[in-house]
Amino acid sequence: MGKITFDSDLCKGCGLCVEACPKGLIFIDTGTLNQKGYHPAATAEDAPCIGCAFCAMMCPDCVIKVEK
């Protein structure tokens, strides 16, 4: 199973990763604000990630690290 981690303070909440995820596991966390004042992208702790790295490939700010 894959695992994705976000460097949330670099995230600008553009939502391109949300669109790219084939499993629809990523969401914009409107309940939090990061250092820059954006709502960062997030995923559930136990999300069934397949490790395809599509989210990371579309991220303009290299926020996402993908492990498998």
Binding site: K12, C14, Y38, A53, A56, D61, C62, K65, V66
Partner: peptide
């Protein structure tokens, strides 16, 4: 690790707007 930031990119946060293709 399947995907991580390339080592020839610095850690500096980019000034580009959200969703700007320059970062990509």
């Amino acid at each position: 690790i399947v995907f991580d930031k390339p080592k020839c990119l610095k850690d500096a946060p980019m000034h580009y707007c959200p969703g700007c293709a320059h970062g990509l």
